[in-house]
């Protein structure tokens, strides 16, 4: 392993009912994904405030992914539909500001999809790694 290999920081907001359980499933099945991905448990993807995403970028994250139940399967009936609208707009705005769209993502991963969880996180980590460090939404005070 290279000593100075660039490792992106990735924050994954996972809904408690589907995607967090999917992450547990990935663990139970020993389906590895990069350690750069750190999960924060939220009750529903709709709990994720754009402020959290910006906060993560500010504090040094290079990528933020939100994972929730598949449309139609939200534990709270409609939460992920609101997530979808909010994030569609937010991501479009970030793109409009010239911030790499690939740094943010929404994925629907059910409790049964451990394999999808691992695959999605691996892919996302690779995408973010290829973009390199987050420069456009960084806060220099938070850098070491």
């Amino acid at each position: 392993m290279q000593v100075n290999e660039y490792k992106p920081k990735i924050v994954a907001f996972c809904c408690n009912w589907c995607s967090y359980a999917g992450a547990d499933g990935a663990g139970s099945a020993r389906l590895a994904y990069p350690a750069e991905v750190k999960i924060i448990r939220v009750p529903c993807s709709c709990r994720v405030n754009p402020m959290f995403i910006l906060r993560a970028f500010q504090r040094g994250a290079d990528g933020v992914i939100i994972a929730g139940c598949h449309p139609g399967d939200c534990h709270y009936t409609s939460g992920n539909y609101f997530t979808r609208r909010r994030m569609a707009l937010l991501f479009s705005m970030l793109d409009y500001l010239g911030i790499e769209r690939e740094r943010t993502r929404v994925e629907w991963i059910s409790a049964a999809e451990g394999a999808k969880f691992s695959k999605t996180m691996s892919e996302f980590a690779a995408t973010v790694a290829s973009l390199g460090e987050n420069k456009r939404l960084e806060d220099l005070r938070c850098k070491q």
Binding site: R84, A88, L89, F91, R105
Partner: peptide, 15 residues
């Protein structure tokens, strides 16, 4: 209001 409602066939974020 568009953010107070949804459609099941809405586009995906980033789509």
């Amino acid at each position: 209001p568009p953010l107070g409602t949804y459609d099941k066939a809405d586009r995906e974020a980033g789509e």
